[in-house]
Design a binder for these strands. Structure first.
Length: 818
RNA sequence: GCAUAGGUGGCGAAAUUGGUAGACGCGCCAGCCUUAGGAGCUGGUUUCCGCGAGGAAGUGAGGGUUCGAGUCCCUCCCUGUGCACCA
């Protein structure tokens, strides 16, 4: 009886050996030789209580395969791992179970570590980081202070230290600044919610509707980087759909601001006052279609527009009550309500004011309506119902005039607007500044204090990290304040400048903070004097390949690019690293439940990686996830499918442990192993892992049938190594090698050996295959055509007719057209 | 609506980028082995016609280019994903 393939014995043995030998440790190198390095990055996981999802290993295995190949090709590979551990789910979980988030995190990290190690990934565990480690978040806080101490210089188009600011009110220009913004407020839970917790306008905790409330929060001025974040996409290799999502998110549009004069309606004007006197203001609108201005038959302002309040206080609006009611409703209206109302628009006319269309000089009415957004453009639009669907809907609903007018020339209109001094060319963006405060406990404390004498004072680096107080109670408050606000001992402190009494900022940072720069920390994870040493950054950065989920394309990916650019501008990142953190970005897709629906606890179709590893072992699991379908396409889990992979590896095992090794082998076999080497190598580079696996299967079938020489077996073992690291290591050592297969040289395909002496020539008549004949590879065109016409079956279809054309494709076919 | 990825057997999918459609795997069928098989091995498996050699049809629909189209062009339809009353 032959020995059976026992994944578990093999896997734990080799995992221990690898860890002992440290074969996956990256060595810092000389920046002058950085072409030898390869930095591959996966999005570090959030260590949730649920443990690893089967989706995680899909991405990690894919990069693991690429990194193993690069390592075998002689690259100095950095493939690190860490934990993005601050955040809401852990905090909520800890509150529910009355434990500390610190303890929950430690437990979850231990569980994730066990799971990841059981899968045999070649991570460099010596560089493991954790965003909740004070030694890590010290630098997150330090970076926040650098944002606080910087402004954006429009002329130089980069951030600079605030000390270099020339002009009035530098505080108004800091990259980290405080401003009133809306937060999501759940009236039943009496708690401020993060956007993630209020998706769809519904509270994640109680399911009730979420309202908007105003609160002063810390913001980061990402909008200053809108153009650079957009333009620099040209310099990086991201998937097209990633680029387009970022482009959409930034949402640049070009057009013009146009001023509309406002006066009382003609009918209300007293005969004594002249037309000029009656103008009491202007409303500036933003439009991308100034060429349609003749068709602007009314003006619409956002209910929150400042001028509405002004006119109300000046008593100009004759239906004030109605307007105020509408304003009040619009402001408290939740996103959910707005979505529900998408069947019709709402709005109120501002009676007592009229606008003048500068193109036609006609009086047009002014409305407020919540389909006009306060935060975009100028918060006011000229409505052109003849050309704009939304304006048409509104006009239809309220019986406003729709006038078809000819379009003007765009360039001429822009000049006309500018020459008359009634506006200017303008560019707007959808991108908003980044709301950086969270009223939560489990995040990095914002390292600022408020002093009556000195105002807002940043902590100095020697006071960092500002530790999160270790307390028993950290539940959210009814007031919308951070739980830290209730910890008076922690809040009351002394001012770093004047030593007088001061209060700490009690908001914490969002979990996007720690993940915005973790890839920098991997370059030098233990440095206590800097977030990373410049020489090490020069060697490792930028990241050569970054893989992650599409769900992080607009937030994390954009935030971290922005964060990196600020550090770059402020010269904390060496110039030679470049102004983009990631050279290449790829995205994996989801693994769905059986039947193609999303895996979820409620549907009961969640597959636990532990179960799969226990039943089949890591190598089978890894290969199954690669074979499941194209890496960038969603794929349903199929428990039966994994059986096929099991058979495949068992067949490999038999080939190496049972078959007698022939001294010589067929030309086909030699050709096939080199073809396999070529294809597997190419497929790994292009991330076509599913076809790489099938190529390995084809080769295995051939070896099982025909037998294979030692050379072929060695070559195959190396090709298999990135996919099934444990099995290949076992086979490698059984072949007598003492060094790891993972540090052996990646096999190069020899194209002269792929070349065959004969090939199958396909013969087509009128585009249909009529025969296939074996011919010599160096057959001449004439001979090929001759042989083709000589074929009996071909003659049956040619039927003595004269071919109008005969095409010969070397090495492939002869096509005869009648 | 805008953007983006797709649509190929019973299923997951391949297709050297314009050259044999369905590789590889699942499932199914037959056979072998076995006390037994929901284990393993071997062979078969797009559909239709035919005993067979072989033939016909076939890549969401319809046109077009070409000796030749899953692939290129035009007009549509459907599905997934992201953003969305962004002026």
């Amino acid at each position: 009886m032959n020995e059976r393939y026992s994944p578990h014995e093999i896997e734990s043995k080799w995992q221990a050996t690898w860890e002992e030998d440290g074969i996956y440790h990256a060595k810092d190198g000389d920046p002058r030789h950085r072409d030898e390095k390869f930095y591959g990055l996966i999005e570090f996981p959030y260590p949730s209580g649920e443990g690893l999802h089967v989706g995680h290993p899909r991405s990690y295995t894919a990069l693991d395969i690429m990194m193993r190949k690069k390592r075998m090709e002689g690259k100095n590979v950095l493939y690190p791992i860490g934990w993005d551990a601050f955040g809401l789910p852990t905090e909520n979980f800890a509150i529910k179970h009355k434990i500390k988030p610190q303890d929950a995190t430690a437990k979850n990290v231990a569980n994730f570590t066990r799971q990841l190690k059981s899968l045999g990934f070649g991570f460099d565990w010596s560089r493991e980081i954790n965003t909740t480690d004070p030694a890590y978040y010290k630098w997150t806080q330090w970076m926040f202070l650098k944002f606080y101490d910087a402004f954006y210089d429009e002329e130089q188009d980069r951030a600079r230290p605030i000390s270099e600011f020339v002009g009035e009110d530098p505080d108004a220009h800091r990259l980290a600044f405080k401003a009133k913004t809306e937060i999501n407020w759940c009236p039943s839970c009496k708690i401020g919610l993060a956007n993630e917790e209020a998706q769809g306008g519904v509270c994640e905790r109680c399911g009730g509707p979420v309202e908007k409330r105003e609160k002063e929060q810390w913001m980061l001025r990402i909008t200053k980087y809108a153009d650079r974040l957009l333009n620099d996409l040209e310099s990086v290799d991201y998937l097209e759909r990633i680029k387009s999502q970022q482009t959409n998110w930034i949402g640049k549009s070009e057009g013009a601001y146009v001023d509309f004069e406002i006066r009382p309606p003609f009918s209300a004007r007293s005969s004594a006052s002249s037309d000029n006197d009656s103008v009491f203001g202007t409303i500036r609108v933003f439009t991308t279609r100034p060429d349609t201005i003749d068709g602007a038959t009314f003006l619409v302002m956002a209910p929150e527009h400042g001028m509405v309040a002004t006119w109300l206080s000046e008593g100009r609006i004759t239906n004030a009550k109605q307007v105020q009611d509408y304003q009040a409703k619009a402001i408290t209206k939740s996103d959910l309500d707005r979505q529900r109302e998408d069947k019709g628009k709402t709005g109120v006319e501002l009676k007592g004011v009229q606008a003048i269309n500068p193109a036609t000089q006609e009086e047009i009415p002014v409305w407020i309506a919540d389909y006009v957004l306060a935060g975009y453009g100028t918060g006011a639009i000229m409505a052109v119902p003849a050309y704009d669907e939304r304006d048409r809907d509104f006009a239809d609903q309220f019986k406003l005039p729709i006038v078809e007018t000819p379009l003007r020339d765009m360039a001429e209109t822009l000049s006309w607007v500018e020459n008359r001094g009634i506006g200017e060319r303008a560019t707007t963006y959808r991108l908003r500044d980044w709301v950086f405060s969270r009223q939560r406990y489990w995040g990095e404390p914002i390292p600022l204090v408020y002093c009556d004498a000195c105002g807002t004072v940043p902590l100095s680096i020697s006071d960092l990290p500002l530790l999160l107080p270790d307390v028993e109670v950290y539940e959210p408050t009814d007031t919308g304040e951070s739980p830290l606000a209730g910890m008076t001992e922690w809040v009351h402190t002394t001012c770093p400048t004047c030593k007088g009494p001061a209060k700490r900022e009690t908001d914490t940072m969002p979990n996007w903070a720690g993940s915005s720069w973790y890839f920098l920390r991997y370059c030098d994870p233990k440095n206590n004097d800097a977030f990373a040493d410049a020489e090490k950054l020069k060697y490792w950065m930028p990241v050569d390949l970054y893989n992650g989920g599409m769900e992080h394309t607009t937030l994390h990916l954009l935030y971290s690019r922005f964060w990196y650019k600020v550090l770059f501008d402020l010269e904390y990142i060496p110039k030679s690293c470049g102004s983009e953190p990631y050279s290449m970005r790829r995205s994996h897709a989801l693994i769905l439940g059986e039947g193609g629906i999303k895996m979820s606890k409620s549907k009961g179709n969640v597959v636990n990686p532990d179960d799969i590893v226990n039943e089949y072992g890591a190598d089978i699991f890894r290969i199954y996830e690669m074979f499941i379908g194209p890496f960038d396409q969603d794929a349903p889990w199929n428990t039966r499918g994994i059986q096929g992979v099991k058979r495949f590896l068992e067949k490999v095992w038999r080939v190496y442990t049972e078959d007698e090794t022939p001294q010589s082998e067929s030309e086909e076999c030699v050709s096939l192993i080199h073809k396999t080497a070529q294809k597997v190598g190419d497929d790994i580079e292009s991330m076509d892992f599913n076809t790489a696996v099938s190529t390995l299967m084809v080769m295995t079938n051939e070896m099982a049938k025909q037998g294979a020489s030692l050379t072929t077996r060695e070559m195959f073992c190396k090709l298999l190594a990135p996919f099934a690291p444990h099995l290949s290591e076992e086979l490698w050592s059984r072949m007598g090698y003492t060094d790891s297969v993972h540090v052996s040289a990646w096999p190069k395909a020899d194209s002269s050996k792929i070349h065959r002496d004969t090939f199958e020539l396909v013969i087509q008549v009128d585009g249909k295959v009529r025969d296939k004949i074996m011919v010599s590879s160096d057959i001449s065109e004439e001979l090929a055509k001759e042989k083709a016409l000589a074929s009996e079956n071909v003659q049956k279809f040619v039927k003595n007719r004269q071919p109008s054309r005969i095409v010969y494709v070397p090495g492939r076919l002869v096509s005869i057209a009648i």
